Simulated assay, not measured.
Amino acid sequence: MALLISPDDLAAALRADAPPRVLDVRWRLDRPDGRPEYLAGHLPGAVFVDLETELARHGDPGDGRHPLPGRAELEAAARRWGLDDGDAVVVYDEGGALSAARAWWLLHRSGVADVRVLDGGVTAWAAAGLPLETGDVRPRHGTITLEPIVDGVALIDEAAAWPGHGVLLDVRAAERYRGEVEPIDPLAGHIPGAVSLPTTDHLDDGRFRDAAEIRATFVAAGAEPGVPVAAYCGSGVTAAHTAFAGALAGIDVTVYPGSWSQWSNTPGRPVATGPQP
């Protein structure tokens, strides 16, 4: 099953008899509500997805900033988006899929067979001269049934132990890994034993690099074939982006959803700084 779709291919698919459901997942750390941008211009028929309330749940600081939603909550959201069992789904954001990948990962892990990411997002769509719509899209409620997420997820103790048997990737910006800056969480640094591999390394001008290039970045970080790989970020959002990049390269990546926001809010967890694991 293809994981990426180009703007031209998506435009053709939207003209077919059974078009995919399109989800707009615009969100940024400095602008978490992407609805104003969505209302100003989105792909035809696209439904807005609120990452903060639909792709995460509220929890205590010790749960991290974006704990995973429960199965029932995610299913209710997916039905609001108009999804039915068997639907093909395309997710997108502004460009590099840094937030859209969270929707891809949750739906993929919940049993949705055909979920693709629009390569380059709305930026590439508009650059191709394809039309945008304004205003809100409110589809009829769908009837999809999602499965509970039972694999591909690491809890905090599993993340702590991961460097002992595999590669734990810290996919935040390198300066946050080194502990030079920390704009949000209470402590600066990284999980001891983690290796720095910023998820933006998998992109070139907002689009994904080819599979061979992505695979090479993983190998350079120690993720040789057969080595178990897990990833964390600030709050579990861009770790899903690394999981998507891994899938493009044929590498299974477990996500630690609590990520640094949970680790740094949990008393007694050690913190490493500097460029080395």
Rank of each mutant, 00 (worst) to 15 (best):
D9R: 05
A11R: 04
P20C: 06
D24M: 03
R26P: 00
L39V: 07
A40M: 12
G41Y: 15
L43H: 08
P44T: 12
A46Y: 00
V49A: 15
H58Y: 09
P67L: 13
E73P: 03
L74D: 15
D84M: 13
D87M: 09
Y92L: 04
G96D: 14
A101M: 14
W104F: 11
R109W: 13
V112F: 05
D114H: 10
V115P: 00
L118K: 04
L118D: 04
G121S: 05
A127R: 13
A127G: 10
P131G: 09
I144W: 01
E147G: 06
I149M: 08
G152S: 05
I156M: 12
I156Y: 10
V167W: 01
R172Q: 10
A174M: 02
A174P: 00
E175W: 01
R176Y: 11
V181M: 00
E182I: 14
I184V: 15
P186G: 12
I191Q: 03
R207G: 07
R209S: 08
D210Q: 05
A211N: 00
A212S: 09
E213G: 08
E213N: 06
V219K: 06
A220H: 08
G222I: 07
G226I: 10
V227D: 11
P228G: 11
A230I: 01
C233P: 01
G236C: 02
G236E: 02
T242G: 05
G250R: 07
W260Q: 05
W263V: 00
S264E: 14
P267E: 09
G274Y: 13
Q276H: 12
P277K: 03
